[in-house]
């Protein structure tokens, strides 16, 4: 059981949760994730750590309410409630060292997990340029936090309602063209990570992406999170979640992500029906 200490909607449909998890908080490192299960009938949900506080014994998660379980989490789990199971930290930490200038790209809800990585890279003496992108202004969050750990912060929106109009790959390309990038981190929707990787490989700059495949146990047992990297099968839960983006088989990754889309819809419908019953 893990108690929820705080919840807050930080922008449209994206919520911040602060959860009591002292063991995880004491061990967490940038790039790792945890798995939670809301209740007895719940699924195991992998979430990349957005922040943690070893002294307070808490971890921060940022959740976008899209599927059944994430909706249920934001709609039915509030301050003081308990989450049945929380386990972590899982996966390998980001390889933090002094690279020179690093570009950190966070897209959509991926803005949250890029934050501790940018912070760690900055602390390791890197020059950090952060690019945060979202579809619209009301889907942006944590810009102040990102700004505090970056030498430069570039914000993009698809519709131009805030910052630059366009996709994150555009400023990324400009930085690469200017020739001052030694390493890139990108976290966000799979398609965004794919295109960031394509852009990076044009310039031969190494890029790390954080993959979020379907997982069940997340501890190195079930094998569903397999991804093809440089032609080899890897398991995101124990070999990742971070991989070299230019070596990922993205088409396969996208196909596997969509594996249960129809049943996910069905679960959401069934959940909506129970919500209506309650009203």
């Amino acid at each position: 059981m893990a108690k929820i200490l705080k919840t807050k909607e930080i922008c449209t449909n994206i919520w911040e949760f602060i959860i009591e998890a002292p063991l995880i908080a004491s061990k967490a490192q940038a790039g790792q994730f945890l798995i939670l299960r809301l209740h007895e009938r719940g699924e195991r949900i992998p979430l990349t750590l957005a922040d943690w506080d070893p002294e307070a014994g808490t971890v921060t998660l940022v959740v976008q309410a899209v599927g059944k379980s994430t909706r249920e989490m934001v709609e039915r789990f509030g301050e003081g409630d308990e989450i049945r199971d929380v386990v972590g930290p899982l996966g390998l930490p980001s390889e933090i060292k002094r690279y020179g200038t690093v570009v950190c790209v966070g897209g959509g809800v991926g803005i949250a997990p890029i934050y501790p990585i940018a912070r760690a890279l900055k602390a390791a003496g890197n020059g950090v340029v952060t690019i945060a992108g979202a579809r619209r202004r009301d889907l942006l969050f944590w810009l102040d936090k990102l700004d505090a750990v970056s030498d430069e912060l570039i914000v993009t929106t698809d519709d131009g309602s805030f910052g630059r109009k366009g996709l994150v790959t555009e400023p990324l390309r400009e930085l690469l063209e200017a020739g001052r990038v030694d390493k890139i981190w990108a976290i966000g929707p799979a398609v965004m990570m794919k295109f960031c990787s394509l852009t990076a490989s044009e310039f031969d700059v190494p890029i790390v992406v954080s993959l979020n495949p379907i997982m069940i146990d997340g501890t190195g047992m079930c094998g569903v999170c397999r991804v093809e990297v440089a032609g080899e099968t890897k398991f995101a839960c124990v070999d990742g979640p971070e991989f070299e983006g230019d070596k990922v088989n993205w088409d396969l990754f996208l196909a596997r992500l969509a594996m249960y889309r129809d049943l996910e819809e069905k679960a959401l419908e069934a959940y909506r029906a129970t919500t209506e019953e309650r009203l």
Binding site: E43, I216, Y260, E264, A267
Partner: peptide
């Protein structure tokens, strides 16, 4: 869907 995890 009584339990959340699907299978096909």
């Amino acid at each position: 869907p009584e339990y959340d995890t699907p299978i096909k």
